[in-house]
Design a protein around this nucleic acid. Structure first.
Length: 485
RNA sequence: CGGGGUGUAGCGCAGUCUGGCAGCGCGCUUGGUUUGGGACCAAGAGAGCGCGGGUUCGAAUCCCGCCACCCCGACCA
C-alpha cells in the first residue's frame, strides 16, 4: 500500500508504537471520540454499527440458549451493594454515587450500577418461590459505570455498554454448567463472528469476580502479544442468594437457596476486534460484523461512462442484497477520484471492495479487492454476486486463520523461571507455566514480570511437576500467563 | 493516584527562549476543469492562542494558580 500523504495525519505504524497505532486507527475509521467527560467515550456511528452487529449476533445466541431480555434500573441503593461482602469490597471504590435528587440530599445514596447483581437478585427473591420457577434465565443490555483512573477507548472507559446475563438454578451442578455453557457461547461468538481465536478456561482466585466462586473467561491474544479478556462468566454459588435471600421450595418441600451465575461481554469487544485484525493502513473488519461488508466504486470519465458504471454498480448492489449480502455501499460520490475512495474504505475496514470501470464493462467483469490481503482479482460480471459471497467467507476464515497462527506462534511453554522472565520481555505472548496454585507465587510473578495469570485452559491435560516459581508440586494443568490489557 | 508530555482554526503544526496587535499545510465553502491508487486552478469562510488571575503602554509569548487530554506505572470488562 502507498505511503500516506505527508500533510495528512498518518496512522502510526504498529511496529513503531502500538498504543498510538490503536488510537490512530480509531480516529481514522471514525469509530469513537473522547468526550468532554473524562474517561468517557462517544461511540460514533461507524463504531456503534459494529457494536450493533455484535449485539445482533450475540443476542440471537443468548436467546437460543433460553434466556430472555429484561431491563433493571441504573440506580442501586447503597444498602443493596453492601449486602455481599466480597462484592462491595470489589466494586464500591470504583463507583459513581448520586447523593442529590430534585435539589435535595437523598435519604440513601444511589450508586450508578457497576454491574447489576444486587438490584437484579433483589427482584429475583420476589419472583422465585418454587423449583418450578427455576431456572430463571435473564439477560440485560445496558450501560454500566466504573470509575476507572486510566482509560482507553473501548478497552477501558468509565462508562461502557455491555450485556449481563444473570441466572438462578436449583443445583450447584446446573448453575456451574450454565456458567460454562455461556463461556462456550462467548467462545463460539468470538471465533465465528469476530474471527478471534480465544483460550477459554478458568481464572485464578486472585483474578476472579468479586463475589464469585469460580470465574470462567475467554482470553484473546492481540497482535502485540498482550492478552485481552474478551468475556467472563461466573459461577456465583449461593453467595448472593444468601445475601439477598433468594430461596425456593424444593420438590420435597424443603427451603433452599438458589445457585446463580452471571456473565457478560462489553464494548471492549470492539477494541479486541480492532487490535486483532487491523493493519498499518487502518481498520480491518471480519465480514460477519462489518457494518458495510462491500463497497462498490464505479469509475468514470464523463457522463456516459458515469451512467454506465454507476448503473452496473447499482445493479450488482441489488443482486447482492438479493443474495443475502446486506448494506452494500455504492460509492457514487462526485468530486472524489477513485483512489481517494479506495483509501477511504480501507481506513474504515470494509472487507471487500468492488471496482467497476469502463475497462471492466468492456470485458463484462468486475474487479474484487480484498481488504485483508490486498489481493485483486477480476470476476465475470455474471458471477459477481456468487464470487463476492465466496470471498467474504474466505476473508472471514482468512482472518481467523491468520489470528490463530499468530496466537499459536506466540504461545510458549517453559519450566524455568529465569527463562520465562527473559522471554516475556523479548517475545510477549501466552506462557504456559506450571503453577502450584498459591496466590503468593502468582503475586510475585506479577510483581516481577508484569504478567498475570490469564486463564487455566479447559482443553488441556494435567501436567504435574515443580511450580515454576517456588518449585513446590504443581499437580494440575499449566496456567497461561501473559501481560494483559 | 505517582512519573513524563502536550494544550494556538475541524485536524496536524510553526510562532513562546529574545513581548509589538496570529501564521502554514490538510480539511471545509463556492465556481470551473478532472476522475483505473489520496486531482488541479481560482476565490472564500474559520482561531485571538485550555481556564482564571497578575506584570506591562502592549501578553499566545513573562509570573502565579487551576483544568483537561495523551503516554508510562499501581487497580479493572
Amino acid at each position: 500500500m502507498p505511503e500516506p500523504r505527508e500533510s495528512e495525519k498518518a496512522i502510526t505504524k504498529r511496529a513503531e508504537d502500538y498504543g498510538r497505532w490503536y488510537t490512530d486507527v480509531i480516529a481514522a475509521a471514525e469509530l469513537a471520540d473522547h468526550s468532554p467527560v473524562r474517561g468517557c467515550m462517544v461511540i460514533r456511528p461507524h463504531g456503534y454499527a459494529i457494536w450493533e452487529a455484535i449485539q445482533r449476533a450475540l443476542d440471537r445466541m443468548i436467546k437460543k440458549t433460553g434466556h430472555q431480555n429484561a431491563y433493571f434500573p441504573l440506580f442501586i441503593p447503597e444498602s443493596f451493594l453492601k449486602k455481599e461482602a466480597q462484592h462491595v469490597e470489589g466494586f464500591a471504590p470504583h463507583c459513581a454515587v448520586v447523593t442529590h435528587g430534585g435539589g435535595q440530599k437523598l435519604e440513601e445514596a444511589l450508586y450508578v450500577r457497576p454491574t447489576s447483581e444486587t438490584i437484579m437478585y433483589t427482584m429475583f427473591a420476589k419472583w422465585i418461590q418454587s423449583w418450578r420457577d427455576l431456572p430463571l434465565l435473564i439477560n440485560q443490555w445496558a450501560n454500566v459505570v466504573r470509575w476507572e483512573l486510566r482509560t482507553r477507548l473501548f478497552l477501558r472507559t468509565c462508562e461502557f455498554l455491555w450485556q449481563e446475563g444473570h441466572t438462578a438454578h436449583a443445583t450447584a451442578e446446573e448453575a456451574d454448567a450454565e456458567a460454562r455453557k455461556m463461556c462456550g457461547v462467548y467462545r463460539t461468538f468470538a471465533e465465528e463472528f469476530m474471527a478471534l481465536p480465544v483460550v477459554s478456561g478458568s481464572k485464578s482466585e486472585a483474578e476472579r469476580f468479586a463475589g464469585a466462586e469460580t470465574t470462567y473467561c475467554i482470553e484473546g491474544l492481540m497482535q502485540d502479544g498482550k492478552a485481552l479478556q474478551a468475556g467472563t462468566s461466573h459461577f456465583l454459588g449461593q453467595n448472593f442468594a444468601k445475601a439477598f435471600d433468594v430461596k425456593f421450595q424444593t420438590q420435597d418441600g424443603q427451603l433452599a437457596h438458589v445457585w446463580q451465575t452471571s456473565w457478560g461481554v462489553s464494548t471492549r469487544l470492539v477494541g479486541a476486534l480492532i487490535m486483532a485484525h487491523s493493519d498499518d493502513t487502518g481498520l480491518v473488519l471480519p465480514p460477519k460484523l462489518a457494518p458495510i461488508p462491500v463497497a462498490i466504486v464505479p469509475i468514470w470519465k464523463g457522463d456516459e461512462e458515469r451512467k454506465a458504471t454507476l448503473g452496473a454498480a447499482n445493479d450488482l448492489a441489488g443482486k447482492l442484497e438479493g443474495a443475502g449480502v446486506e448494506n452494500v455501499k455504492v460509492d457514487d460520490r462526485e468530486g472524489l477520484r477513485p483512489g481517494a475512495k479506495y483509501f477511504d474504505w480501507e481506513r474504515r475496514g470494509v472487507p471487500l471492495r468492488v471496482e467497476i470501470g469502463p475497462k471492466d464493462l468492456a470485458k463484462s467483469q468486475v474487479m474484487l479487492v480484498r481488504r485483508d490481503t490486498g489481493a485483486k482479482s477480476p470476476a465475470p460480471a455474471a458471477e459477481g454476486p456468487a464470487r463476492v459471497r465466496a470471498l467474504l467467507d474466505e476473508i472471514q476464515k482468512g482472518l481467523f486463520d491468520r489470528a490463530k497462527s499468530h496466537r499459536d506462534a506466540h504461545t510458549f511453554s517453559t519450566d524455568r523461571y529465569d527463562d520465562f522472565k527473559k522471554r516475556i520481555e523479548e517475545a510477549p505472548g501466552f506462557y504456559a507455566l506450571r503453577w502450584c496454585g498459591s496466590g503468593k507465587c502468582e503475586a510475585e510473578i506479577k510483581e516481577e514480570t508484569q504478567a498475570t495469570l490469564r486463564v487455566i485452559p479447559f482443553d488441556s491435560k494435567p501436567d504435574p511437576g515443580p511450580c515454576v516459581k517456588c518449585g513446590a508440586n504443581a499437580p494440575g494443568k499449566r496456567a497461561y500467563f501473559a501481560r494483559a490489557y
